[in-house]
């Protein structure tokens, strides 16, 4: 077990080194990816800044609370871009063109192939920007901040990162059967807009759907609410349970997918 873990850790370290040298080789691409994420952060922050010129609160949340929420959302996004995004973007092509074979025949865990092939070195800068913005949002926060809040947000951010990865995997794993070019990428991209808005503004069926079936509220709103002291213990347990259920679903779909994978140009 420990031997396997160390083996995969060494492979991942090599992947990181390779990513760094690739980033240095394609400097323009490196810069553009960094700018691209900065623009994404800017338009999300800009949206709420303009909105708050016309209201003093949003669903009962003050400006400083919404800023903490955005900071959580952007930090999660940057971590996702750093570790996972490219693996998921490239997965449909690998299934459709059969290049997945090359990875499956290697003496490593197949699931590691799914999420550990790429490390996006340029996004490391965006993680730093995310951390700085998070620090700024926390400094502006008018509520009380205790050790418990910090521990809660750290734990729930980790939980959200796993859930976000599972959720995104759901968008591409169906290519084992659909053989489409991008999977359900466009649909899942539209869910980003939901996760970039606080859950408190949604009501009724919409709120229920995005809390349970498509749990994007758990991903971004729950960590922010935990930090603000607005998350109940039951909600915290629910967040962990949702992640466990989604991880189990991904495990099942991945195994079924591999069974139906018929190699080159399937």
């Amino acid at each position: 077990m420990m031997h396997e873990f160390l083996k995969h850790a060494r492979i991942y370290a090599a992947t990181m080194r390779y990513s760094m040298s690739q980033a240095m080789l394609f400097r323009m691409d490196f810069a553009l990816r960094f700018v691209m994420d900065l623009v994404y952060y800017a338009i999300n922050i800009g949206f709420f800044e303009i909105l708050f010129m016309h209201t003093s609160d949003l669903g009962g949340w003050r400006h400083d609370e919404v800023m903490v929420f955005i900071a959580c959302s952007l930090l999660l996004d940057s971590l996702y871009m750093l570790f996972i995004a490219r693996n998921i973007w490239e997965f449909p092509a690998q299934v459709n063109m059969g290049t997945l074979d090359g990875y499956l025949t290697r003496p490593i865990k197949p699931f590691f192939v799914l999420i550990g092939r790429h490390f996006q070195f340029p996004s490391l800068l965006n993680v730093l920007v995310g951390i700085i913005f998070f620090g700024y949002a926390v400094s502006q926060f008018q509520g009380e901040i205790g050790v418990w809040n910090v521990l809660c947000i750290a734990f729930l951010m980790l939980n959200s990162f796993i859930l976000m990865t599972c959720f995104r995997l759901l968008s591409v794993l169906p290519v084992f059967w659909t053989h489409s070019r991008f999977g359900f990428h466009m649909l899942f991209q539209s869910f980003d807009q939901v996760s970039n808005r606080p859950d408190v503004i949604f009501r009724g069926v919409t709120h229920f759907v995005f809390l349970t079936l498509v749990p994007v509220f758990v991903i971004t709103s729950f960590p922010a609410r935990a930090f603000m002291g607005r998350l109940t213990l039951n909600e915290g347990i629910f967040a962990v349970l949702v992640t466990v259920v989604f991880a189990a679903i991904i495990g099942i779909i991945w195994r079924l997918g591999l069974r139906s994978y018929s190699s080159a140009s399937s």
């Binding site: 909105l51 016309h54 003093s56 669903g59 539209s190 807009q193 808005r197 503004i201």
Partner: peptide
Amino acid sequence: CELLLSTVVELLVTVAVWTAVFEAR
């Protein structure tokens, strides 16, 4: 599926945001 659902999701988000702003004001 993608066209309809992604449109519905986008509409739900924009409607929720502006309803919340009008309610707050």
